[in-house]
C-alpha cells in the first residue's frame, strides 16, 4: 500500500459523506464520524443499539469500502457481521478492536 492510498483512507471526508449513527430506521443519534480516526472514537461511546443496527445491515462495511475506500477493513467487518448473536458491549469490543487496530496500522506505515 503506497502513501497516497493510506492518506486517502485516513482523510477527513465532507459532512455529506460522513457516517451517521442511527439506532433504527430514521432515528439519528446525533453522532457522526467523518474519518477513520473519528470512527474509532465514536465506536467507544455510541449507543450499542446503533452498532447492532448498522453492523447487521452491513452499513459499516459499505461506508468503509465505498467512502473510505479500505476494502481490507470492510472485509474484516464483514466477517464480524457473520458471527452469530454478537451484540451489545461484546460487539463494541470486537468492532473497536478491529477498527482501531487497522487505524493504528495505517498511521504507523508512513
Amino acid at each position: 500500500m503506497n502513501r497516497r492510498e493510506v492518506e486517502r483512507i485516513l482523510r477527513k471526508v465532507p459532512r455529506e459523506k460522513a457516517f451517521y449513527f442511527f439506532t433504527s430506521i430514521g432515528n439519528y443519534t446525533g453522532e457522526s464520524a467523518a474519518s477513520l480516526g473519528e470512527f474509532v472514537e465514536k465506536l467507544k461511546t455510541v449507543n450499542s443499539k446503533s452498532l447492532e443496527f448498522h453492523l447487521h445491515r452491513g452499513d459499516f462495511e459499505k461506508w468503509v469500502a465505498d467512502t473510505l475506500e479500505d476494502k481490507e477493513l470492510a472485509e474484516e467487518i464483514g466477517v464480524l457481521r457473520r458471527v452469530p448473536s454478537l451484540m451489545g458491549e461484546n460487539l463494541r469490543r470486537k468492532l473497536h478492536f478491529i477498527v482501531s487496530r487497522r487505524h493504528d496500522q495505517l498511521k504507523s506505515l508512513f
Partner: peptide, 13 residues
C-alpha cells in the same frame, strides 16, 4: 442528517 444544525432525529412510521 448531514444538514448543518441537525442535532438528532426521531422518526415514527
Amino acid at each position: 442528517a448531514p444538514l448543518p444544525g441537525v442535532l438528532r432525529i426521531r422518526t415514527s412510521i
